[in-house]
């Protein structure tokens, strides 16, 4: 039976008709058109669908949308504020922690969750903390670099959000 669900996503209220068997990933991607959240396996194994629920990293492919009412949900679309990238987005972009980009939203949301829990993770903590996100392109080195740079405060008052290459 479908029901109307109030979802708080990226600080905005959304009223959506959902069936109980719809995952949060399906709802944000198909119903709300926020396709930044990616699907690589749909069974918890790859982390591409990682989003934040109440500040912590969750896998949206195995989270029910109906169970997400009343929670604060943040997807990749919610990080950029007023055209300004979040430090972790900026770092991934500049350090080339992104190649094909399919894992990237999940990687960023996972790193965000990690930094929420532990703002200054050591290299070893980053390695463990990011182990739920598979990336086939980068070999992870540049993702580590980016998270480390953010943890070290390198992107603290990042003003530039320009995609610009120069």
């Amino acid at each position: 039976m479908k029901q109307v669900v109030q979802l708080n996503i990226n600080d905005s209220p959304y009223e959506v008709m959902v069936a109980p068997n719809e995952t949060l990933a399906d709802v944000v991607r198909r119903k709300l058109g926020m396709t930044g959240t990616k699907l690589g396996c749909e069974q918890g194994d790859c982390g591409a669908c990682t989003i934040l629920i109440d500040g912590r990293s969750h896998l949206s492919c195995i989270t029910l949308a109906v169970a997400s009412e009343g929670k604060e949900i943040v997807t990749i679309e919610g990080l950029e504020k007023d055209g300004k990238l979040d430090p972790i987005q900026q770092a991934i972009l500049e350090k080339q922690g992104v190649q094909c980009g399919i894992c990237t939203p999940g990687v960023i949301m996972s790193a965000k969750g990690l930094l929420n829990e532990n703002p200054e993770p050591s290299h070893a903590e980053i390695v463990v903390g990011m182990s739920g996100n598979l990336c086939r392109c980068t070999g992870y080195e540049k993702i580590f670099d980016a998270v480390e740079a953010v943890a070290a405060g390198e992107y603290d008052d990042e003003k530039t959000s320009q995609a610009g290459a120069e």
Binding site: S57, L59, S110, G113, G132
Partner: peptide
């Protein structure tokens, strides 16, 4: 167990 996301959930 799993990874951070799995332990959170």
């Amino acid at each position: 167990i799993g990874a951070r996301q799995i332990r959170t959930m």
